[in-house]
């Protein structure tokens, strides 16, 4: 591992450029920071000549993902550092926007979350709409365990490709959960 003093900014920048990364963030995320980064995202999308509908879907996906992370951290009683989010918005070769967000979760929640995403990934748009409407009518406490209910279905509905979740092992009985949507 490299020493902190030797982070090569130019290499990092090249990496961002090569992967067409529009925006990235890593660290503790507050209510107001979500709004500020969201503002920057809106401006970048406008400068990138995104269609208004696509821009709105990317923004909406970003909001649901980051607010889910905040809700999860609050439910699990995480401090700011533990509730840190890693967020990346990029463009792929086909001109789609990739919205990815990740956070630390309790290892015991990993399978539940992965299962929820996998279940949504196989549904078509009609089935997702039905699931969305059903979830809308459910008591709010239904989302309690993971904080991810209606928001996750909303993201799945907006994604052009099946939602994808990944779990990476981490220390202290935790896992890093990351979610990827294609707009």
């Amino acid at each position: 591992m490299e020493n902190m003093d030797t982070i090569d900014l130019f290499t990092l920048r090249e990496h961002f450029n090569r992967n067409r990364i529009l925006l990235c963030f890593n660290g503790p995320i507050s209510r107001s920071l979500i709004e500020e980064i969201g503002n920057a995202l809106k401006n970048y999308l406008q400068a990138d000549n995104a269609h208004p509908s696509a821009a709105m879907d990317v923004f909406a996906t970003y909001i649901e993902m980051t607010q889910n992370i905040r809700h999860y951290a609050a439910k699990r009683g995480y401090n700011d550092q533990e509730g840190s989010a890693t967020v990346v918005v990029a463009r792929d070769e086909d001109g789609h926007y990739l919205v990815q967000a990740g956070n630390m979760i309790e290892a015991s929640d990993g399978d539940t979350l992965q299962g929820m995403v996998d279940e949504l990934a196989v549904l078509d748009k009609v089935a997702l709409k039905a699931r969305y409407k059903e979830q809308m009518r459910k008591p709010r406490d239904d989302d309690a365990v993971t904080g991810a209910g209606l928001g996750l279905i909303d993201i799945a509905r907006k994604s052009a490709a099946p939602l994808q979740a990944d779990l990476s092992p981490a220390v202290n009985g935790r896992q890093f959960f990351s979610l990827r949507a294609v707009i």
């Binding site: 923004f59 909406a60 649901e64 009518r137 709010r140 209606l150 928001g151 909303d154």
Partner: peptide, 13 residues
């Protein structure tokens, strides 16, 4: 209203 997050959608319902 232009954009609503899912939390607002529930409240609007």
């Amino acid at each position: 209203i232009v954009y609503m997050n899912t939390s607002s959608v529930r409240a609007m319902l």
